[in-house]
Design a protein around this nucleic acid. Sequence first.
DNA 1: TATTGTTATACTCTATAACTATA
DNA 2: TATAGTTATAGAGTATAACAATA
Lengths: 175, 175
Amino acid sequence: MTAGEQAGDNPIPRQALTRQVSFLLAQLGAHATQRFTDRIAPLGLTPPDIGVLRMIAMSPGRSQRALAEELGVVPSRVVALLDNLDRKGLVERRRSATDRRNHELHPTPAAYQLMGELWPVLQTHEADLTAALSPAERDQLASLLARIADQQGLDVGVHPGYQRANSPTTDQTKG
Amino acid sequence: MTAGEQAGDNPIPRQALTRQVSFLLAQLGAHATQRFTDRIAPLGLTPPDIGVLRMIAMSPGRSQRALAEELGVVPSRVVALLDNLDRKGLVERRRSATDRRNHELHPTPAAYQLMGELWPVLQTHEADLTAALSPAERDQLASLLARIADQQGLDVGVHPGYQRANSPTTDQTKG
DNA sequence: TATTGTTATACTCTATAACTATA
DNA sequence: TATAGTTATAGAGTATAACAATA
């Protein structure tokens, strides 16, 4: 080591970082997403697949424009997202009869079946991830997290991973 | 809507998702990372910059190979990560005298100064993110999260975002 | 021959801008 | 002319494989 360096005394101490809720959330969030990704891979699905499918299932018939709005992404992104689902036979784009510019989005029967299969996978995922906690603690944690999500203005059930909007002015790299 | 669809009764109900710790973690984790990214952008830094810099500062002189090991990424990825820091004048690669194949990694004085400036930013970030909670609740939350992180085998202070190892057998898309 | 770091290459994600069909 | 969706294009991130220097 050379003069000017301060090894054991660096400005971002490990201990402090460990206790920061913000870091723990980022760390555990990435971990949870990674585990989830692994779990649904056997079903041929990705996290974005599921998020988009769920939105469409919640109110079938909406347009791609409306979906883009809700997800917070540009329309061209929705095209790619839907192409993925389309290729898997999970979504159907129906030309609107009243305005032929619009596509009405509908899950296919296969999609509904797949979502049914997904449910137990989600439950296993949840159980494994919270294995360290008692049921009471798990509820407590869910409550605390929900309060933060609410205060932070996050849409219920909408993962912010979609609108990683690389605004032209900011230099962001990692979601 | 057409026969076979089940709009209000879809298989992934919003209410259930909302209470799942796993989803809340993924959602809040992505949100926390996004906010963090925005906050450090004015300093010209990205989240990976900070993570790597912190590791190097923790034990200066380590090799790129060792760093790759700790981050859980391939050596070629470390090259890119370090190139970013290098371009910003924050890291120095010194040819090892004992084994000229090695690069000993050292933060520059500018890096130490920047890490000093970073500290208050982290504190603001933490405070804003936990604004919904009392100090006691914040501690409680940190404790619950730390227990999960520990049980899940996460390295203390290491963000899993580095090793988004797209293993050839799995089909993962989003981190 | 084995190891460290680098370069070459390829693939995915995602945005912007140009384009087509429709209104 | 304005709008919905698509395609063309570009840039970042990240992996694998081939390579050069050193041991």
